[in-house]
Design a protein around this nucleic acid. Structure first.
Length: 507
RNA sequence: GGCGGCGUAGCUCAGUGGUAGAGCAGGGGAAUCAUAAUCCCUUGGUCGGUGGUUCAAAUCCGCCCGCCGCUACCA
């Protein structure tokens, strides 16, 4: 039976070019989306751009463009990034689209009807860069007299009427919700932070602004535009057709997983479920926060000039090597370091040597000694059993978003296959026991098929090439197809290297 | 200040009571089917420090040190 799986990336804020962090989030979500499709689930994978807010309005002014033209340009850049990273999103949402304005207005009215919103006025210190208010006591004063938020962003005194969301009313319900759904926020460190934040008490949340225009108007009071985070979070509902409960994708709610960066956990794990519960809508099932990348040991920053454009990496190393590295190198949820040396090491040791070379030697032996076709199935071996167990082993790790562990499981099998081929030495059996040689090569072919099938979500292009070389029909590459043995005599095309070694250019 | 995470081989990390592990890097050997790839063996750690519980502690408890995150407060 087909299960629904709705997974999202955050919508990316269009105040700068996409960098490796955006690519990382998107690739991780993409791997899960592709995995669930491979498992036969009905998948809806959403990404997009967050385009409203004062920060965007000002950035557009500085660029000499009207906000829509400005966001059109940057949204196109994010779309391009997604395409270049091989992201298989089913939809790309922009918060400036009419469907989104409609959904936001509908949710707002629902909150009003539920008496979750009231009009008051707000005054306080506001940091444009953070899109957040701060208390007097949180600020420090810079040498030039400018007040600075803990984040380092300058703040300005703002006094204006504002609608408020009764967040304070949801403290106990949120705590009860977290308690009933222990997996709602992961990893544990982030869950603990959210719990302590909510336990410390929640103040009502200002959810409208009158000081700028670049946003979604509040229904019935167009002097106000909605708070950008309310606007942004609603995108997850917009995309499944909200408020139309008969929309084609309406049954995808609640979302199975929001993949987020650790800087936006609070919005997704506190505000978002509170908004939804207040509106009588089920909260999402899970919010997973990944870590941040440093570059060659240093924090990534524009001023240092070490921001990595993922597209340049792909141009140099290839898409699949980059996808593989990002998920293999660092446990998801923890911070990690990106270094050129580490990437090349992974690429050469694991992709080119362990896997690429294994496939090449097996296929060459078959080409020369077995007429270039699949031998008959062989008696089972420990290696064959380990390979057959891969889908389950990988699934268990991916369900926990433990990408690095899932890949380690696959590489354990690959290493075992390298040991097997050396110990069995089919090139020697060719003369002494050709029938045994064919059995050994069959075991290795079966192993490579399992490996290539389960690696498709991580490295779609390379694994397509490998499965082509293994003679596996294009329509028989999902997890279920692994239960059916390949027929003896299936032809094997002549092999060519899937993962060339990377040699650093000299000079 | 409070809460939480982390501190294990040169590097990245796994290991939650019972003789210290993996990958990479380093050293030696084998093989030559293969992208000079692979395989086998191997060097290497007083498991941050300290005190305690236990027949037995990397693993439990106390204190301390260091790094990181969230949060609070400020005389």
């Amino acid at each position: 039976m087909t299960a629904n799986f709705y997974i999202t990336t955050p919508i990316y804020y269009v105040n700068g070019a996409p960098h490796i962090g955006h690519a990382y989030t998107s690739i991780a979500a993409d791997v899960l989306a592709r995995w669930h499709r491979l498992a036969g689930d009905s998948v809806f994978f959403l990404t997009g751009t967050d385009e409203h807010g004062q920060k965007v309005e000002r950035a557009a002014q500085e660029a000499g463009l009207d906000p829509q033209a400005f966001t059109d340009r940057i949204a196109a850049d994010f779309r391009d990034m997604a395409a270049r990273m091989g992201i298989s999103n089913d939809d790309f949402i922009r918060t400036t689209e009419p469907r989104h304005k409609h959904a936001c207005a509908a949710l707002w009215q629902r909150l009003v009807a539920a008496d979750a919103i009231y009009l008051d006025h707000y005054e306080g210190w506001y940091a444009l860069r953070d899109e957040a208010f701060y208390g007097e006591d949180e600020l420090t004063t810079r040498a030039d007299g400018v007040r600075i938020a803990p984040s380092g962003a300058p703040v300005e005194w703002v006094r204006e009427p504002s609608y408020f969301f009764r967040l304070s009313a949801w403290q106990d319900k949120l705590l009860a919700f977290y308690d009933e759904h222990p997996d709602f926020i992961a990893p544990t460190a982030r869950r603990n932070e959210v719990l302590s934040f909510v336990r410390a008490g929640l103040a009502d949340l200002s959810i409208s602004r009158t000081s700028f225009r670049w946003g979604i108007p509040v229904p019935g009071d167009p002097a106000h535009v909605m708070y950008v985070w309310l606007d942004a979070l609603v995108n997850y509902l917009t995309a499944i057709g909200y408020p139309d409960t008969d929309a084609a994708r309406a049954s995808f709610w609640p979302a199975d997983l929001h993949v987020v960066g650790k800087e936006i956990v609070r919005f997704h794990a506190v505000f978002w479920p509170a908004f939804l519960m207040a509106a009588g809508i089920a909260p999402p099932r899970r919010v997973y926060s990944h870590g941040w990348w440093t570059v060659e040991g240093e924090k990534m920053s524009k001023s240092v000039g070490n921001v990595i454009d993922p597209r340049a990496l792909v141009d140099e190393f290839g898409l699949d090597a980059v996808r593989f590295f990002l998920l293999r190198e660092v446990p998801f949820g923890q911070d990690g370091d990106f270094s050129r040396r580490a990437l090349i090491s992974r690429l050469n040791n694991e992709l080119a040597n362990d896997l690429g070379n294994l496939a090449q030697r097996v296929l060459t032996l078959l080409q020369r000694n077995c007429a270039g076709e699949w031998p008959a199935p062989a008696a089972t071996t420990p290696l064959a059993e380990a390979a057959a167990a891969l889908p389950g082993a990988v699934r268990a790790r991916l369900d926990r978003l433990a990408f690095h562990e899932a890949l380690e499981e696959v590489w354990r099998v690959i290493r075992a296959a390298n040991a097997y081929i050396d110990h069995q030495a089919p090139w020697a059996l060719r003369k002494t026991d050709p029938a045994r040689m064919a059995e050994v090569l069959r075991v290795l072919l079966d192993t490579l098929r399992s490996v290539a099938v389960v690696l498709q979500p991580v490295m779609p292009g390379s694994m397509t090439a490998m499965l082509d070389q293994l003679g596996v029909p294009a329509q028989a590459r999902d997890l279920a197809a692994l239960d059916t043995a390949m027929a003896a005599g299936t032809p094997l095309p002549s092999p060519s290297g899937v993962f060339p070694r990377f040699v650093e250019a000299v000079g």
